[in-house]
């Protein structure tokens, strides 16, 4: 009996600590001044990759090194990323800031996959995402959907909860979303530090979001 009580108390204590940590991670938005930061970008395939590369095109070389995560079934994104980085290196040949890496993880949801198997594949992606995030320990995670970015962002959040590193999570909803959020948007609006939308209708519906006009 005493044993059970002790276990329950220990579990409760761990629970309280985790909730506290979560609260601290969410509240902590103090800006540490810095000269450069490592960036992890989730390239979501197809139009998502095109959009996020346009955003990256505007970032200065302080965002270095750049780690790209792509779904292992995605054939096109690696090519797009390589040609984007090549282009960047040609424009700015001061080589020190041109480091980039491409990582592959399983896609968490193929189009039209059933919900139950989505849950299983997401857990599987989670299992593989956390070690990747833990290894890279990026300062900033940038993503714009679809599914692949959810386990990555959850892992990044977990890094903060465990007190290993506070990772800033920025989600940019696709230009295609005018009135409704995407599925990954609906999840990540709760987990991201900054959630950017590109149409005023979405800003009205989700006051917590950031609207900067059309940015792609």
């Amino acid at each position: 009996m005493a044993c059970v009580l002790i276990l329950a108390a220990a579990a409760a204590a761990v629970g309280v600590v985790l909730v506290l940590r979560l609260w601290i991670v969410f509240r902590c938005q103090d800006v540490t001044p810095r000269e450069s930061l490592s960036l992890l970008v989730v390239a979501g395939s197809g139009g998502h990759t095109t959009e996020i590369l346009r955003l990256l095109g505007s970032l200065s070389s302080a965002y270095s090194p750049r780690h790209y995560v792509i779904a292992d079934t995605d054939k096109m994104s690696a090519n797009k990323i390589n040609s984007f980085e090549l282009d960047r290196a040609e424009r700015d040949p001061s080589t020190t800031h041109n480091k980039y890496y491409i990582h592959r993880i399983p896609r968490s949801r193929e189009v039209q996959q059933s919900w139950l198997s989505t849950v299983l594949t997401t857990l599987h992606s989670m299992w593989l995402s956390f070690p990747l995030i833990h290894q890279v320990k990026p300062d900033l995670v940038l993503c714009n959907g679809p599914g692949t970015c959810v386990p990555i962002c959850v892992s990044a959040l977990l890094l903060g909860i465990l007190g290993i590193k506070k990772v800033i999570i920025v989600y940019v909803e696709s230009i295609c979303r005018v009135e409704t959020l995407s599925l990954s948007g609906k999840i990540l609006i709760h987990l991201s530090d900054y959630f950017i939308v590109q149409w005023p209708t979405l800003k009205e519906k989700y006051p917590k979001s950031v609207y900067l006009g059309r940015i792609v």
């Binding site: 955003l55 970032l59 900067l212 940015i215």
Partner: peptide, 10 residues
Amino acid sequence: GQPEKFSAFL
């Protein structure tokens, strides 16, 4: 579009 607004914000 104005990606420079995004980089300034970030």
